[in-house]
């Protein structure tokens, strides 16, 4: 089987360290890793570290400050609603040019004691996928002859019920690179479902502590520094592993880098808007319109 790809898992203090250093960011951006998890410690069951940053805020900064590095933002739907989360995920997909995805966990260590169950996390993952797909990118036409910007009749409500009832559609189109990759942390992923990738126990991407010998028989390996280790040390180790036989992954979207097919679209769906008509102007005669 081919050599595994390399992924990185950053904890809170590493996010602060990485985003505080232009030199580290440049090394991170040049590293041919598959992806980096922005705040793995949120969802892996450990106690919160002394410092962290919101995962999507870090993703937005990376989208603007780097050109190649890919990343997963981390979320669990304890406090936040999937509609808000889906907006951030889709926005990152556009602004990073497809370099971003989402890692869903059951419980966020930093978020306190609100309800957290695998069923709730799954419902959130389903909602994010459905919402991202509610507005096909191809419906953007920008036709100045008819005055039609978007064939908005192709946009659909998601009409989700259950844990998170959501009407939809989303406030932005699907990224041109397709619906964002959704990863799941640890056991409990439900198939079939929206999850493209499972990280950790029971998944195709085992987590290896930085300093241990990583397995070579997996699709990918996620390298995870301890809190006492730095992002600098992690990048150095990753650079060495990639020079020693781990499979480098070149620039491109996260979905393409992982060789994942575009997810299937939900069938049907209630049209959110009527078929747009060529654009009439404000009436100037006395007749009532």
């Amino acid at each position: 089987m081919p050599a595994p790809y390399l992924a990185l898992g950053l904890a809170g203090p590493h996010l602060v360290e990485l985003t505080g250093s232009a030199a580290l960011l440049a090394r991170w951006d040049a590293l041919p890793a598959a992806f980096t998890v922005l705040g793995l410690d949120r969802v892996e069951g450990s106690a919160p570290a002394g410092q962290t940053l919101d995962s999507s805020a870090v993703g937005a900064a990376l989208a603007g400050r780097t050109a190649r590095g890919r990343f997963l933002v981390v979320a669990s739907p304890q406090r936040d609603h999937p509609y808000n989360l889906a907006r951030r995920v889709a926005s990152l997909g556009h602004l990073s040019r497809g370099r971003s995805g989402l890692l869903v966990g059951v419980r966020d260590a930093y978020a306190g004691v609100d309800p957290a169950t695998p069923a709730r996390a799954h419902a959130a993952a389903r909602a994010v996928r459905a919402l991202e797909q509610s507005w096909p990118y191809d419906s953007i036409v920008g036709d100045t002859d008819t005055g039609i910007l978007v064939r908005s009749n192709e946009i659909v409500h998601v009409d989700l019920d259950g844990e998170f009832p959501i009407a939809g559609p989303l406030t932005a189109p699907e990224p041109p690179t397709g619906a964002s990759v959704i990863a799941w942390y640890g056991p409990g992923a439900v198939s079939p479902g929206p999850v493209d990738l499972v990280i950790g126990e029971g998944g195709s991407v085992p987590v290896t502590p930085l300093g241990a010998t990583p397995p070579r028989d997996a699709a990918g390996v996620l390298l995870r520094p301890a809190l006492g280790q730095t992002a600098d040390e992690l990048l150095t180790a990753a650079e060495e592993l990639l020079a020693e036989g781990f499979r480098p992954v070149g620039p491109g979207s996260l979905r393409a880098a992982l060789g994942l097919a575009a997810p299937a679209r939900r069938a049907g769906g209630r049209a959110a808007f009527p078929v747009p008509q060529p654009n009439p102007s404000l009436p100037t005669s006395r007749s009532r319109s």
Binding site: S56, A57, G59, A60, A61, L62, A63, G64, R65, N84, R87, R88, A90, S91, L92, H94, L95, V150, T171, A172, P173
Partner: peptide, 15 residues
């Protein structure tokens, strides 16, 4: 009416 999420949108512009 088309809206990226504002904190992400401006987070990117801030960078």
């Amino acid at each position: 009416p088309i809206r990226l999420e504002p904190t992400v949108n401006w987070g990117h512009v801030a960078a």
